Simulated assay, not measured.
Amino acid sequence: MQYSHKDMQGNDIALPTGKVMCIGRNYLDHIAEMNSVVSKQPLLFMKPSAALCALSQPVAIPTGKGECHNELEVSVLLKSTLKNASEEEVRDAIWGIGLGLDLTLRDVQAKLKADGQPWERAKSFDGSAPLSCFIPIDQITELDDLHFSLTINGEVRQQGHTALMLHKIVPQIAHMSGEFRLDAGDVVFTGTPKGVGPLFAGDKVNVELKGHLTLDTEVINE
């Protein structure tokens, strides 16, 4: 099924399907669980438009490539182009807020790291960015006070609070726009907290953006 951005009522949003710009190592607890270090500058990577799929549909994980891990993140849908943008311009360019899974082939990523190679094979495969619907930005009172969670088979695996981000949402998008042009229809993944772990076919998954949305889905093999 071809992906399109959706609003809270399930209607198509009149924006193209763009790329996903991601930031890594944006929560100290996740950095610690991965035995990583705080990056000297924001760690950026991208997913192509083919990575986008609907989180309301079953989440398909690749087979034969080792463990595929969950990384739940607050996602930001942009409605206009940003290049070398100010924080005010970033705020004006946000259509809305949702949740996304940065699916990660962890065994593949470990091998890539060991070889000093980029992460795209582990992070940017087709269907690696399942997305919820988006809440209009005028319904979000404070971007730096959003609570979100991921529950698998009834057990909470991830809990996040945007106040704990090393690089807050608006400043990080402004920084990204200084490195890469961001276009209308692009989505920004803003980083994941601790609690990443393997997904298995048959897992029942719930994601929640507290006070705004909750969504149930399941995991299947690709």
Rank of each mutant, 00 (worst) to 15 (best):
E155I: 02
H167C: 09
E67V: 06
T214R: 04
P118R: 03
A93S: 12
K19A: 13
N35D: 15
M46V: 11
Q9M: 11
H147T: 12
P198F: 14
D107N: 14
L101Q: 15
L72H: 03
L215F: 09
E89R: 03
L164E: 14
T214S: 12
D216H: 09
L78C: 03
D12L: 05
A60F: 11
L164F: 11
A184V: 02
L150T: 03
L146F: 00
T81V: 14
Q172Y: 06
L199M: 15
T81I: 09
A184C: 04
N35W: 06
R25D: 02
E89D: 12
E67G: 05
L77D: 07
N26H: 11
R181F: 00
F180C: 08
E155M: 03
H5G: 12
A129M: 06
A163G: 05
L99Y: 08
T217I: 09
N153D: 12
P136C: 07
K204H: 10
A54K: 08
G191Y: 05
A163S: 15
S177I: 10
W119C: 00
S177R: 04
F134L: 05
Q117N: 12
L99H: 07
E218A: 08
G178R: 05
P193V: 08
M34C: 06
W119I: 02
A14W: 04
D203V: 05
D144P: 02
E120S: 13
K113Y: 03
A32I: 13
A32C: 03
L101G: 02
I97K: 11
G178P: 04
L15W: 05
P136E: 14
W95E: 04
I31H: 10
N221H: 13
K40R: 11
M1T: 13
V205R: 01
L143D: 07
S80R: 12
A129G: 04
R91M: 07
D216W: 02
Y3H: 03
T141Y: 11
T217M: 06
G66L: 08
I135H: 02
E155L: 03
S39Y: 04
G197L: 02
V219E: 11
K19T: 15
R121W: 10
T63A: 15
A110P: 01
G96P: 12
M165H: 05
L15T: 09
N221E: 15
V38I: 15
R91G: 06
L103D: 01
L143R: 00
M21F: 10
S128V: 13
H167N: 13
L43G: 00
D115E: 15
M46Y: 03
P58Y: 08
I31W: 13
T151I: 10
K194L: 09
A50D: 07
L28S: 10
T81S: 12
I173D: 01
L182W: 06
R91L: 15
F134T: 06
I152K: 00
C68A: 14
I97L: 12
T104I: 02
T162W: 09
H161D: 14
S75A: 15
F200K: 10
V207T: 08
P42S: 05
F200E: 12
L103S: 01
L28W: 09
K194R: 15
H147P: 01
K47P: 09
I31E: 11
W95D: 01
I137W: 01
K83P: 03
N221P: 10
A93G: 00
G202R: 02
L82S: 04
E179C: 14
H69Y: 15
V156Y: 01
R157I: 01
F200S: 14
G195D: 07
E33T: 04
Q117E: 12
I137N: 03
